[in-house]
Simulated scan of single mutants.
Amino acid sequence: MSMIGEYVRVTAAQLDQAIKDPEWASDLIDELIEADWEGGAAPEEDPSSTTPDAARALGARSLDVDKAWDALDFLLRRRDFPVDIIHGEAPIPGADDWGYGPPRYLTPARVQIAADALGGLTADELVADVSPQELAGADVYPRIIWERGESLDYVRGYFAVLVPFFQAAAQAGDGMLIWLD
């Protein structure tokens, strides 16, 4: 079973309700994800690519970064990124496990800080001077692809989707629910 990094944009009011009522939050994320897929807002994977279309991330309320989450975390931490956009910064009190642990969140203010910082970073800058061997040595998930020496294009592609997703959330004043599924 794979570990997939998941995101859902929520309004400030929805975030407040999610923090108070984790069961309500679980129902909400199901509704938002389903609405994205039914309405065509969710980023779709291009068969010739390993990552979703970044342009569709702008209108989406949900996003997953597949198994690139740990490499993104490693790469952002080495740049002292100001916000933990991979795991979230605060747990939702009393929330059940949503896959691989309970969900966490970012407030609208933290989403804005993240979006501003993401806007000043390109995918090429993010992966500069890092090799697949370094990721394998650091035990970055999924280690097997780094041990095989696969390209960092996979990570670049998901970073290219994550940036407009966070920028759209910040522009709307949204918070973020984040979890591994």
Rank of each mutant, 00 (worst) to 15 (best):
T122L: 09
I178M: 07
D64C: 07
G5E: 06
A60Q: 01
G120M: 04
V127I: 15
D73A: 08
A172Q: 10
W98G: 05
V83L: 05
I33F: 14
P91D: 15
D129Q: 09
R110K: 14
I4V: 13
A25W: 05
D153M: 07
A160W: 02
S48W: 09
V111K: 00
V65H: 02
L121Y: 14
A57C: 04
G149H: 01
I33R: 13
R61M: 11
G99K: 05
F166R: 00
D27G: 14
E125Q: 14
E89R: 11
I178Q: 03
K20N: 13
R143P: 04
T122K: 01
L121C: 07
D53W: 00
A71K: 10
A90C: 08
P132L: 03
A114V: 10
L118K: 00
H87R: 15
M1T: 13
P43Y: 00
A115E: 10
A115M: 06
E147W: 12
L58V: 14
L15E: 02
F165W: 04
L58K: 03
L76V: 10
R61P: 01
A18F: 13
D116I: 12
S131N: 05
R148W: 15
L152I: 03
P142N: 07
W179C: 05
I145E: 15
P22R: 01
A68E: 04
L180I: 14
A109N: 09
E134N: 01
R110Q: 15
A18D: 04
M1W: 10
V8I: 15
D139L: 12
P82L: 08
G59W: 03
T51K: 12
D84M: 07
L28E: 13
D46Q: 11
A54F: 02
F81L: 04
G40H: 03
K67A: 12
T50D: 07
I144P: 08
E125C: 05
L135S: 13
P142C: 02
L28M: 09
D73G: 06
A114R: 12
M1C: 08
D181S: 10
V10C: 07
P102W: 02
A95L: 05
L63P: 01
P82C: 07
W146E: 13
P108G: 10
T122P: 10
S2P: 15
W179G: 11
A57K: 01
T50E: 14
Q171W: 12
D153A: 11
P164R: 00
F165R: 00
G5A: 03
S2T: 15
L121P: 11
V130M: 06
Y154T: 02
D129P: 01
M3R: 15
G94T: 02
G149T: 01
I92H: 06
V140R: 00
A60V: 03
D70S: 08
R61V: 01
Y158N: 06
W24N: 00
E89Y: 09
A109V: 12
